[in-house]
Simulated assay, not measured.
Amino acid sequence: MNKRFWRFAMVPALLLAGAAIGQQFPMLDMVANRVVQKYQQSSCEQLWQERAAKQGQPKSEREQQAVQLLHTDPQMRAAFIDRVAAPIANKMFECGMIP
């Protein structure tokens, strides 16, 4: 009985923790939504063309700052990756960009 109680008690706690992370980084939430939306709305051909066009080009200053921020804040990085990894990986798999 006691184990069962703790399992049910953990679910709301985990949900609240996830909501707190989203509230903790509202800007990250907005950027992550844009990234996911871009991948979901782009065709495979568009993604392939964009990938080819970006090869060898330097990142914009804004993009460099965002990446630097993710490097310095492990909690923010984890929250960002948790939000974007699955949708991006699924789209790349569908498009043959990853095996």
Rank of each mutant, 00 (worst) to 15 (best):
V11K: 00
F5A: 03
C95L: 04
P58A: 11
N2T: 11
A52C: 02
L16E: 14
S42L: 05
P99L: 12
Q37S: 11
Q57S: 07
A19M: 13
M10D: 03
T72V: 10
V84G: 05
V35R: 03
Q37T: 13
N90R: 15
R7Q: 02
P74Q: 12
L47Q: 03
I98V: 09
P12S: 09
Q68N: 15
I21N: 00
K54I: 04
Q64T: 10
R4P: 00
T72D: 15
F93S: 05
A20D: 12
Y39W: 14
Q49D: 10
L16F: 15
M97F: 05
R62S: 15
L16T: 04
L69D: 02
M92K: 10
Q68C: 08
I21A: 10
S43Q: 08
Q64V: 13
A66M: 15
F8P: 00
F25N: 01
W48Q: 02
M97D: 00
L28S: 02
Q75A: 12
Q55G: 03
P12L: 13
R62G: 13
A78G: 14
F8I: 04
M1T: 12
A13K: 08
F25K: 00
G22I: 12
N90S: 12
V35F: 04
R83Y: 10
M30G: 06
A32V: 07
R4D: 06
Q64Y: 09
I21V: 13
R7N: 00
G22F: 15
S42H: 05
S43E: 11
Q55N: 08
A20N: 11
L28R: 01
F80T: 08
P74W: 12
V84L: 06
I98T: 07
K59D: 09
Q55A: 07
V84R: 02
R4L: 06
A17G: 05
Q41W: 09
F5M: 05
A86S: 07
K59H: 11
N90T: 13
L28T: 03
F25I: 03
V67D: 09
E61F: 15
L47M: 08
V67K: 11
K38W: 10
N33C: 04
Q75N: 14
N2E: 14
P74M: 13
A52H: 02
V35I: 11
K59V: 07
P74A: 12
M76P: 06
R51E: 07
R62C: 09
Q24M: 13
V36E: 01
P74G: 14
I81A: 11
L69S: 06
V31D: 02
W48G: 02
V36Q: 00
G18E: 08
A17R: 02
Q23S: 12
I21G: 01
V67S: 09
Q23P: 00
W6H: 01
I21R: 01
K38R: 15
Q75H: 12
L70I: 07
Q40P: 04
M27I: 08
N33P: 03
R4H: 08
K59S: 10
I98G: 05
E50V: 03
G18P: 04
E45H: 03
R62L: 14
N33K: 06
E63V: 15
P12T: 01
P87S: 08
